[in-house]
Design a protein around this nucleic acid. Structure first.
Lengths: 137, 137
DNA sequence: CTTGACTCTATAGTGGGCTATAGGGTTTAG
DNA sequence: CTAAACCCTATAGCCCACTATAGAGTCAAG
């Protein structure tokens, strides 16, 4: 089942431990037997991730579903929230890019400017002090 | 020193362990004694982070400096590379935002469309399968 | 019967930059 | 002399979604 969904065997077992996949029945020797439903659920998890959901969010969606309620309304809300956060992140990134460009601009004229010999790196030290950036995983 | 630089004491000690700050002299009872140079170096680390450098990169810059070479050329190169990566990330984010918008658009008309009752969440399952998104730290 | 490709469990590690906790010692003001 | 406010070390935990490793069992083909 792992292979048909394009994930590793460990990942499937990780999802099971994390409560995202139900515990499947076993053969007498302890091998897991996966139903087509389980495979569908695994595909669903992957699709939800592709849409940008964390496993925690997927858990919540599945919890709603298996409590008999349609998760769609909740999902729509989550997506809207996600859109807002993405737009905010884009703005942050845009500002960061502009700062980077300014810094590079200054770096290009730096050799012509006077700077103290005790400095570690004038390119960096010439900056106005701002908040640190996370920038990535 | 931690306070004047706006970081926690543990962070300073973490930097020392990580080789970013030199091991300072101690009082007889073992307390660290920080020179103004150490404080300057700590400020430098924070500035470099604000410009987007990882501690690993800061380590590299300091290594160059304390081998007697000017790190500026290397820093310029790193910044240019960083700019490229940021622009790539912006593009990724832009595409992701567009997908999110499309998904939300589909979600709004979903109640009017027919979909199988066995689905977990049609909003998600209607997606064309794409690569997963990291989206953040 | 052996070999190779699988399966199982349990546990630990990854990255990055810290933060928290436990258990102790030191310094300074009142 | 005591209490508060520091300092010290060492170790573990956080976040997330996996990935890796060790050690053991199972299954099918030749």
């Amino acid at each position: 089942m792992a292979r048909t969904a394009g994930v590793s065997v460990q990942t499937v077992r990780y999802y099971e431990r994390a409560g995202l996949l139900p515990r499947p029945p076993r053969t007498p020797s302890g091998y897991r037997i996966y139903s087509p439903e389980a495979a569908a659920r695994l595909r669903f998890i992957k699709q939800a991730q592709a849409v940008g959901f964390s496993l925690e969010e997927v858990r919540e969606i599945l919890r709603l579903k298996y409590n008999g309620r349609s998760p769609c309304e909740c999902v729509r809300g989550m997506l809207e929230e996600k859109l807002v956060r993405v737009e905010r992140e884009m703005e942050t990134l845009r500002r960061f890019r502009n700062e980077l460009r300014q810094t590079l601009g200054r770096a290009r004229k730096l050799p012509h400017l006077p700077h103290s010999a005790s400095a570690i790196c004038p390119i960096i030290e010439i900056q106005s002090t701002k908040k640190p950036r996370g920038e990535k995983r």
